[in-house]
Nucleic acid binder design. Structure first.
Lengths: 133, 133
DNA sequence: TGAAATAGAACTTATAGGGTCCTATTTTGT
DNA sequence: ACAAAATAGGACCCTATAAGTTCTATTTCA
């Protein structure tokens, strides 16, 4: 299935919430309440987003998360890649696909690369801004 | 993960094989040998492709499968939809997503619809021909 | 009539994503 | 100094779903 992972979906919701009041610090439980998503899951997503440099965090009491880039500058591709890894519709390119080993010069690769590129650019043209009212 | 299902991947391989010698009748076991894919799986894919009108079949001894459209006329989108169902990166549109129920007028939908459209058109521009040498 | 092929459904298995929890670390306030 | 509140990071289980197999029915040709 060509489907977004749930975590990536949550990430967009959470980031859109952060973007609404940019500059403010929100804790994981704040965001859990605002988004109606379970707190452990929200926490998990936030940690990944920090690790990938999409948001910044402060520790300790009064700690929390902030968006340090403008919503227009955060691409959907960045968010998805942060949570799901590289955007590729097939792992054919990695050579792990069984079918590929058979054919010495895989004729399919060209076609899938074309598709992968199109999808990546589609996701790079949509920004967090597009997910806000 | 934004990833193609294995079955859809197999389908492209199988269809590309059929396209190489168009007009000829190939049995499931023929195609299994040519593609090095397990026969039961090849059979399963072929049945779906027939049901969705991508290929035609003849029963009985000397039966088999043929491609009745030109490779250029079979879009990647058609193949993927045949095996995986409608191409939509989120099922947000169906209203089944939990996050959507909360917000009366979902601001995310616009963004995802834009992405869905881009992906669909990307997959509609690639044809079976692109997967052949 | 038998052999070879597709049709279709049902069943089993395997994988991976989703979700939760636990421990460590950091910071603020008393 | 200590307690509380927050993030960091990892480990774990669990469930949903795709993948693969098998069985039975039907069709067709020799």
């Amino acid at each position: 299935m060509i489907k977004l992972s749930r975590l990536a979906g949550y990430a967009v919701i959470i980031l859109a919430t952060l973007a609404e009041q940019r500059g403010c610090l929100f804790s994981a439980s704040d965001l859990s309440m605002k988004t109606n998503l379970p707190e452990p899951t929200v926490g998990k997503v936030l940690k990944v987003l920090v690790r990938q440099g999409i948001i910044e965090s402060s520790r300790g009491v009064k700690g929390g998360y902030v968006l340090h880039k403008a919503a227009e500058e955060i691409k959907a591709a960045d968010i998805i890649e942060a949570l799901d890894g590289p955007i590729a519709i097939t792992d054919c390119v990695k050579g792990s696909e069984k079918g590929c080993e058979m054919v010495s010069l895989c004729p399919l690769m060209g076609g899938w690369e074309k598709v992968n590129y199109s999808i990546r650019s589609a996701l790079a043209q949509v920004t967090l801004k597009d997910f806000m009212t």
